[in-house]
Nucleic acid binder design. Structure first.
Lengths: 162, 162
DNA sequence: CTAGTATTCGTAGGCGCCTACGCAAATGTC
DNA sequence: GACATTTGCGTAGGCGCCTACGAATACTAG
């Protein structure tokens, strides 16, 4: 057996830990990439920054919905980006509860620097996906399966049947 | 397009976020399961507890290696388990640097209660895996591919080629 | 035996995300 | 117009994991 023994052997209850470890490894390597290229970029910025490039501007709530994370997380990312001078925000004149976020000049410059790196990510992801027998397709199916019935429901059913 | 649009469309740099979200969903549902069944159990205990069942006892370093996490994380989990009265620990008489961890009576009782739930997890995971077109096999291949060449190396290669 | 090195575990603080909760602005109801 | 409800965003604190660093014990040369 190889070094993935534990993850591969420990059964269903360990799958969460396995995915977490995988995502943390990806994040850690991403951080190394940005550091190696001398670009000051935090991993958590990606989603928001990427969306701002696409949409031009967006509110906290819109970003949360699109990125499928909480508005709290978006709010924290906004603060981080704002502190770093990459975005600015202003209250919507029509609805003062909403806060619109947009790129600054520095933010646009950063994004421009990031484009080739993100392209490299895409390329590497395609390679890896091919080597892994289209793991992305499997993840899509997994997401769909979880939409049909949550893990919670599935487990409670199994427990009930015992 | 469905609600996974963003993750599915945002390319390679978002795959980490996607996996993180997936693992967090799994963890969250697991917490709900234990809560619904009235069992006081923390998700991070799983790896250590599971290994102690298998091995009887183990040191911090051994657990870290087997679980493929840092000794720091194991140390923190040990403290949590010890505080909850599920394990005890003692220094190895032969090598006083090592700390041996073992289940208490309460810990063994907890593990006994958990067995049917972990079995349900296994069952649910098998179902899900079947629905997702053997996502576990793909993850195994992905781990193998990353062993061959890290994400970091792959991306730096791509960046260099541009 | 002693000095330097390696091993083992711990604390401090950070990551990106989360839930719980609070506040202010907008909306609906009477 | 007054009041409750809903909506949008924020703070506080927690999750499981991490890196950086430090302390104590064991090992290795000379």
């Amino acid at each position: 057996m190889n070094q993935q023994d534990y993850s591969r052997a420990a059964g269903g209850a360990a799958i969460g830990a396995r995915l977490r470890r995988l995502s943390e490894n990806l994040d850690a390597d991403s951080v190394r990439v940005y550091a190696a290229l001398g670009i000051s970029f935090e991993q958590r910025w990606f989603g928001v920054l990427n969306q701002l490039v696409i949409k031009g501007s967006a509110t906290v709530g819109e970003l949360a919905t699109t990125l499928r994370i909480t508005h709290v997380s978006v709010s924290q990312t906004r603060q981080s980006l704002e502190k770093a001078g990459m975005v600015t925000s202003e209250f919507d004149p029509v609805d003062a509860r909403k806060k619109k976020i947009m790129l600054t000049a520095a933010g646009k410059k950063l994004v421009a620097e990031l484009q080739p790196i993100w392209a490299a990510f895409d390329q590497a992801a395609l390679e890896l996906n091919a080597e892994a027998g289209d793991v992305v397709a499997s993840l899509n199916k997994l997401d769909d399966a979880l939409d049909r019935q949550s893990i919670f429901d599935r487990i409670m059913n199994c427990v009930g049947k015992q």
